[in-house]
Amino acid sequence: MLKNKIVLSLFLLIVTTSLVAQEPKMVAIARGKFVPLYGATTKTPVEVKPFYIDVYPVTNAQYLTFLKKYPENSRSRIKGIFADKSYLSQWESDFSFGKVNLSNAPVTNVSWFTAKKYCECQGGRLPTMDEWEYVAMADEKRIDARTKESFNKYIMSWYEKPNTYANPVGETFKNYWGVYDMHGLVWEWTGDFNSIFLSGESRKDKDTDKNLFCGSASVNATDLMNYAAFMRYAFRGSLKARYTTKNLGFRCAKDKK
């Protein structure tokens, strides 16, 4: 009887550890409201329902595991409409990220289609832009650090650091929710990245929707915060779903039932 129990618990232990190894680590994000820079045409807050999000962006090693299981997404077999020519172009071959790329560096040069596919195959989805922005506004201690000058300066300093995509995940700060690398590593895909329509002519966009960007002459934390966030929206605005770029990775999310 006792022997059986030990065997059972051992079995359970193996199952759970293997589950943990398979399942990327996620954390729960509590329900909340915030006013995003874009997306809210009126200044009314957007509600974010509780959900789970990956602690780290998806790594080269994780993506390789996915490709081995779903080889139709590999570099040579992917259809052109789902990913452009630079898809995984930094990898050595279809099923090897090579020696120059770290196994625990974020996978980049992936399209929206492939990122979405990856998350769905893990039973998840890409986070929405509002979810992503909601998690990203937290610093180490606060849910919303967007008005903190040093926080915005940290975000903006990343724009001037070259080749951060080659760094391993988890080396930036751990935020309020326990999530890493929302800033300072790579850009990330969101499910509805193109829901904010930017014409590409930012000055014109400013005319049509005054809420989009406050370019007032005063210098305060709000302006800085806008600049930091604006870069993300501008970047997303330049993308198409099949595009892949070296500084763009992703992480997955999941509904909380």
Binding site: L198, S202, R203, F235, S238, L239, Y243, T244, T245
Partner: peptide
Amino acid sequence: GGGATSSLVAPG
């Protein structure tokens, strides 16, 4: 836009 409306280009 002097071309700006037609030329927004993502990295790569």
